[in-house]
Amino acid sequence: MTAPDDTAARYRRPVPVLWWTGRRPYLLFMIREFSSVFVAWSVVYLLLLVRAVAAGPAAYRGFMELSASWWMLALNVAALALTLFHTITWFVVTPKAVAVRVLGVRLPAFMVAGPLYTAWIAVSAFVVWLLVR
């Protein structure tokens, strides 16, 4: 028996097309990426609202009725869940992705994440105040 050709006979394990379904961290990663669809949807929804507001009180009423329909509510509850997932994952990942150095020493993760959560709460509170005062 001759020695097998070392370079020709390597085995390459094929990657399944849906590789991310087989392992939890990969699946969570894909959900994180997919949350961007709901980020975009939320902005589209807001722009539709602005367009209705621009068109007058009747159009605004019409939009509010549409937004109270069960399927629109379901869509927006899903959007809320996934945009929250986006925010949390974004804030978990940012302190690792950005090395903030003060006087040559890298700040610990909580000192980067802390201001992010603070800004999130402050901006959210401001938006609520702006709209429902």
């Binding site: 939320s42 927006n76 986006h86 974004w90 959210s124 938006v127």
Partner: peptide, 11 residues
Amino acid sequence: AAVLVPVLVLL
């Protein structure tokens, strides 16, 4: 989006 979108969708 992280800072602004959840509160807008919620409201």
